[in-house]
């Protein structure tokens, strides 16, 4: 059993939780994820690591109420326990293996859509700790669903907010914001990291292909064990089948078959719908 040390409602239906898991806090790097099981009858669900505190021994997760299982986690209160958390899983972000000298010569742009701000945050923080200040686009449907803007500002060079409905910052999708930065504001980027809904990562990758900028995406495929055992997270990258859990979760966005990935996310849609009807 793992204690929820802290729980905060950070936006509509979005919660931030610090879970006591000292082993994971000690060994986690940006880009990795964990698998959580809320209770004995629960599913194993993959969640990206948003932050980790080696001293306190906590791992920070951000969960949005989307279906039956995420609802069950979000119903847990501060001081209560979840059944299991395991990790860190997957490979750390590629840039943690690059020397500080090389890193400093690169200008990074992060594009965070919706809940994607949670996994983008530790990457921006890590780069900032290594004296690299990236730019960040945070996209949300509307103002009250925008998360991590303040936190991101303390580590990024520039934070550009964009909302679909124009209720806050730039009005438009993150891809519109990207076009604006590159075409109108004449910004130059060496590398882009885009994390958010699969459909957003698809269109960001299409756009950056046009701009010829290397783009890394972090896939949120369906998984069971997260250790390479089940193969549910199969994804086609450059014509080869990869497992998101052990080969990823980060891949070169220009080679990912997003249409297949989007379709594979629908695998259990009917069952999930039934579960939601039971639970909501």
């Amino acid at each position: 059993m793992y204690k929820i040390e802290n729980k905060e409602n950070i936006a509509e239906n979005i919660f931030r939780m610090d879970i006591v898991a000292p082993y994971i806090a000690k060994s986690a790097f940006p880009g990795q994820f964990v698998i959580v099981r809320t209770h004995e009858q629960g599913e194993r669900i993959p969640l990206t690591v948003c932050d980790f505190d080696k001293d306190k021994g906590t791992v920070t997760l951000v969960v949005q109420v989307l279906g039956a299982s995420s609802k069950k986690i979000c119903e847990k209160n501060q001081g209560e326990y979840i059944a299991d958390i395991t990790g860190p899983l997957g490979n750390p972000s590629e840039f943690i293996n690059i020397s500080d000298e090389q890193l400093k010569s690169k200008k990074f742009l992060f594009i965070a859509g919706g809940l994607g701000s949670a996994p983008v945050y530790p990457q921006v923080k890590w780069l900032s700790m290594h004296d690299v200040k990236p730019d960040v686009i945070i996209g949300a449907k509307t103002k009250n669903m925008m998360i991590f803007e303040t936190e991101m500002k303390s580590f990024a060079e520039n934070v550009f907010a964009a909302t679909d409905d124009g209720s806050y910052g730039f009005k438009g999708l993150v891809t519109d914001m990207l076009d604006d930065l590159i075409v109108n504001q004449n910004k130059k980027y060496d590398e882009i990291v885009a994390i958010g809904p699969m459909i957003m990562m698809k269109f960001v990758s299409l756009a950056t292909k046009k701009y010829k900028i290397k783009t890394t995406v972090s896939l949120n495929s369906i998984m069971v064990d997260g250790t390479g055992m089940c193969g549910a997270c199969r994804v086609n990258v450059g014509g080869e089948t990869k497992f998101t859990c052990v080969d990823g979760p980060e891949f070169d966005g220009h080679y990912v078959d997003f249409d297949e990935a989007l379709r594979r996310q629908m695998m259990y849609r009917n069952q999930e719908h039934q579960a939601n009807c039971k639970c909501m």
Binding site: R44, V224, D225, M229, C230, A232, R234, E260, R264, M267
Partner: peptide, 18 residues
Amino acid sequence: NLNGVMSANEFLTRANLM
């Protein structure tokens, strides 16, 4: 990689472990 193709590991893990 079509929907509906899976490893026996996935299928059995869902049934037995989960």
